Simulated scan of single mutants.
Amino acid sequence: MLDELALDRALGVVWASAVGDALGAPYEFQPSLPDSTPVELKAGGPWERGEWTDDTSMSVPILRELAAGHALEDPAALGRIVAEWQDWSLGAKDVGIQTRAVLSLVRTPTEAVARASSYRVHLENGNRSAGNGSLMRTGPVALGYLGLGVEDTVAKAAARVSELTHFEQDATQACVLWSLAIRHAVLTGRLDVRGQLPHLGQDAAARWGALLDEAEAKQPRDFPNNGWVVHALQAAYSALRHGDGLLDTLERAVRCGHDTDTVAAIAGSLAGAVYGAAALPSEYVSALHGWPGLDAGGLQDLVLATVNGEHVRGAGG
C-alpha cells in the first residue's frame, strides 16, 4: 500500500495532467507566449473553462481498465480500451489526426486489429507516425504497476498501449521513458528521467540522453514542432526542469505555443507525480470536467481504485 504522500502524488499524475490539458486548451495552435503574459484557466474555442480535451479523455479508458483490476498486458483489456476510444471519437470535439486515421480502420476493436491498423497508417505516411498522441495519455500506465521490481512490465505495457495508435519507435520509447519516470516519482517524490534511460537499450539511451541535455539547456518554446513526440517530450521536460513548482511548470508548458494542451498534459503527468495533487490550486481542480461526464472526483475514484486495490501489480510498492 502507498503512504499518504505517495497517494497524493499518484492522484497528482492524473489531476495535474488534466489541469494542464484544460489550461492549455484555449491557447492551442497559437504562437508562444512571453513570460510576462499570464496563463489563465478559461474557456476558448470549443472548450468550456476547466474542460479537458482528448489528452485526458483517451487516458480515462486506460484508468478504467486498471481500476477494474485488469492488466495492460492483457489483449482483452487493450481491446476494450480501443473500443472505448472508438465510441468517444464519434462525438469528440477534437481527435488527433494519427489517432483518427487508425481508429477509422478498426472494424473489430482488438489489440491485434488496432496494431495492424496503426502499422498500416505508419506505412502509408512514409514510415512516420511519431505524433505526440500516445505520450499524452501515458500517465495512467505507471499507476497500475507500483509494486517492486516491475519496471520491465511497465515498459512493455507502455509500449503496447502506445502502439495501438502510434507505431513509430520514437513514440514507443518516449512513452516507456515517461511512464517509468512517473512511476519513480510517485514512489520517491523525485524527478529522475535520466535514471530510466537504461530501459531503452544502449543506443536509444544515448540518443534520448542527448535530447534531455538539449531540453535542460533550452526553454519549452524552443521546441516549436511539439506535435512531434520528441519535441513534445523535450518541451515538457524543459518546463519541469525550469519550473518553480507545479503551477509554474504547467504555465511554462502552455507558453510553448502550438500544441499547448498536449505539452501541458504531458508535463502535468510527471510534474503531478513529483509535487502531488495538493500543489494544484483548488479552484482549478474544482473546475475540471470532461468526457465521459466525469469531474475531478470521478478521476480520483479511478486513481484510488487503481492504486489501492488488491490487484496492484507486483505487490509490495
Rank of each mutant, 00 (worst) to 15 (best):
L280C: 08
P292Q: 12
D259Q: 07
A271W: 12
V274H: 06
L211N: 08
Y237D: 06
A205N: 07
S286L: 14
E251I: 10
G227Y: 09
F223G: 12
A267E: 15
S282A: 11
T262R: 04
S282Q: 10
L302Y: 01
A273L: 02
A265Q: 05
T306F: 00
S282H: 04
F223W: 12
W228Y: 15
A239N: 05
Q234R: 14
A236C: 13
K218Y: 10
D301R: 09
G209P: 05
V254L: 13
D244W: 00
A296W: 01
K218T: 07
L250P: 01
D244F: 00
E251Y: 11
L250K: 02
A205S: 13
W291L: 08
A273W: 01
W228T: 04
H311V: 02
H311I: 02
V307Q: 10
N225S: 13
G272T: 02
A204T: 01
G209L: 08
G245K: 04
L299W: 00
D261K: 15
H258Y: 13
D261I: 15
A287E: 13
L302G: 03
D259L: 02
E310M: 10
Y284T: 03
L280A: 10
G227N: 09
G209S: 13
G298C: 04
E310R: 14
W291I: 02
G243N: 07
H242A: 10
K218F: 08
A253W: 04
S282T: 05
D244Q: 06
D261S: 15
F223V: 13
A204Q: 06
Y284M: 09
G245A: 03
D259I: 00
P292M: 13
P224I: 07
S286V: 14
L270F: 09
G297C: 11
